[in-house]
Amino acid sequence: MTTYDDTAAPPGYSPEVRRILSDPAAAGRSAGLWLPGDPQEDSPEPNQQDPGKDRFPSLDWQQAFATDFSVIDWLPGRFMERGQQVAIVGDGKVGKTLFAHDWLWRAVTGRSFLGDERHDPLRVLYFDRENGLRDVVTRMQALGATPAELAGRFDYRMFPKFSGGLDAVPTAVAELMSIVDETQPDIVIFDTVSRFIAGKENESDTWLQFYGRVHAPLKDRCIACARLDHMGKDSERGSRGSSAKSQDVDHVWEMTRLTEDHAREGDVETVVTQIKMKRTHTRTGLGDDLLHITRRGRKGPSGMWLPGETRHELSDPGTVRQHAQQIQHFVDQLVKMGVPPHLGRDRMKEWAAERGLNLPGKDATLSEITRAVKATLRGDGR
């Protein structure tokens, strides 16, 4: 694992730190949306009273040191923080998009992911130039998602027609930021990032410009961004293209498929895939560097994935995550079975048993499941 310094990177501030700045309204320009040579750089709009205040906000040290940075605002799954920029890299067909869809569906519905705690529902903006409508819909159905859960929070843009590469054309970047400002997402996704650039993948300038025009403005707004990327021919060397791709984000996660087992019972085939997610580069060093993930799915007689039967879970979770993972599994099963929202703890256990689902016997665990079911059906994530 490589830990690197970001002192040379364009600044990006969290909400708390932005309040420390003397003039946070001007931080967008300082984040590097327009790079030197762009037309906008030749015609700035400085503050008439203090021209330097707009573009070069000053830090208040007293207020800065009074800020509590000890609480980490993790996004679901705890592999990136709010406002961070990450790359998720893997070979073709390893399941990067399916992983992202499961993660983000759970994010917008407030569900637990990888044994994490439940949380308030988030908003997602997804740019996809890789997958057709059938792929997207059948994957979402396999995970158990419904249109009502996704509408309003999961903004999915298929094959968006930007006016050029986001690394090279200011107009395209302006179009992107206009959509971002309109939708106010918590997370932005590019699938696959190589489809959104004009420059060559093996040129460092391509990724330095992509950072300046896309990542830095998103980071300044405290909007997280994950870009899906392909592994190079030599997997030991990481993602395809320039090494600058690893230096311009907060974390690089490499996804590798270890094993895949198939078992058939009648007309139903169960597929269990073991996946390793390894963090190869990190700007902060916080959190885990290695996640072992099990993906489970079931196929019906036609070969299509069965609705609600696909999920990702930690293979070796700690005690707390394991408990949360167990709770979420029962919640997903109950919701899929159509459990009525008004049932109390004991009646819910009876209702489930009548349909072949045996819930845990401990009252405290049953109460957790009941509360989580009601929160899921309300859609509030609490």
Score class of each variant (00 low, 15 high):
residue 206 T to W: 11
residue 149 E to P: 00
residue 139 R to G: 13
residue 182 E to V: 00
residue 227 R to V: 11
residue 174 A to L: 11
residue 175 E to W: 08
residue 199 G to H: 12
residue 232 G to S: 11
residue 195 R to Q: 10
residue 191 D to Q: 12
residue 179 I to S: 02
residue 212 G to H: 04
residue 163 S to W: 04
residue 131 N to I: 00
residue 159 F to V: 04
residue 154 F to R: 10
residue 206 T to A: 09
residue 200 K to D: 15
residue 142 A to P: 02
residue 206 T to V: 11
residue 145 A to H: 07
residue 162 F to V: 09
residue 210 F to R: 06
residue 182 E to S: 06
residue 176 L to A: 02
residue 188 V to P: 07
residue 157 R to G: 02
residue 214 V to H: 09
residue 157 R to F: 08
residue 134 R to I: 01
residue 189 I to W: 03
residue 214 V to L: 09
residue 172 A to N: 02
residue 165 G to I: 08
residue 193 V to S: 08
residue 210 F to P: 01
residue 187 I to R: 07
residue 155 D to C: 03
residue 203 E to P: 03
residue 180 V to Y: 04
residue 188 V to M: 05
residue 147 P to Y: 11
residue 197 I to G: 05
residue 177 M to D: 13
residue 203 E to D: 15
residue 172 A to F: 05
residue 130 E to A: 07
residue 141 Q to S: 07
residue 143 L to P: 04
residue 226 A to T: 12
residue 235 S to W: 14
residue 132 G to E: 12
residue 193 V to L: 14
residue 221 R to P: 02
residue 197 I to D: 04
residue 186 D to G: 00
residue 133 L to P: 02
residue 226 A to D: 01
residue 139 R to S: 11
residue 228 L to E: 06
residue 182 E to T: 02
residue 173 V to N: 13
residue 169 V to K: 14
residue 185 P to Q: 07
residue 163 S to E: 14
residue 217 P to D: 05
residue 194 S to F: 05
residue 201 E to D: 15
residue 213 R to Q: 11
residue 213 R to A: 10
residue 152 G to I: 08
residue 218 L to W: 09
residue 232 G to E: 04
residue 153 R to F: 03
residue 170 P to E: 13
residue 179 I to N: 06
residue 227 R to N: 12
residue 181 D to C: 00
residue 225 C to W: 01
residue 227 R to A: 08
residue 151 A to D: 12
residue 130 E to F: 06
residue 141 Q to K: 13
residue 176 L to V: 01
residue 142 A to L: 07
residue 150 L to K: 10
residue 156 Y to L: 13
residue 175 E to H: 10
residue 188 V to N: 07
residue 157 R to S: 08
residue 200 K to M: 11
residue 146 T to G: 09
residue 194 S to G: 07
residue 168 A to P: 00
residue 215 H to C: 06
residue 150 L to N: 10
residue 183 T to F: 01
residue 187 I to H: 03
residue 149 E to S: 12
residue 176 L to G: 09
residue 182 E to L: 06
residue 186 D to P: 04
residue 157 R to N: 10
residue 225 C to K: 05
residue 155 D to N: 13
residue 162 F to N: 10
residue 172 A to D: 05
residue 188 V to F: 05
residue 209 Q to S: 15
residue 139 R to L: 00
residue 162 F to W: 12
residue 157 R to T: 09
residue 189 I to H: 10
residue 140 M to C: 04
residue 170 P to Y: 13
residue 132 G to N: 14
residue 210 F to G: 07
residue 180 V to M: 02
residue 208 L to V: 07
residue 132 G to R: 10
residue 131 N to A: 03
residue 199 G to C: 09
residue 235 S to N: 13
residue 173 V to H: 04
residue 156 Y to P: 06
residue 186 D to R: 02
residue 130 E to N: 08
residue 178 S to Y: 01
residue 226 A to H: 05
residue 141 Q to A: 05
residue 149 E to R: 08
residue 229 D to S: 13
residue 164 G to P: 11
residue 166 L to Y: 11
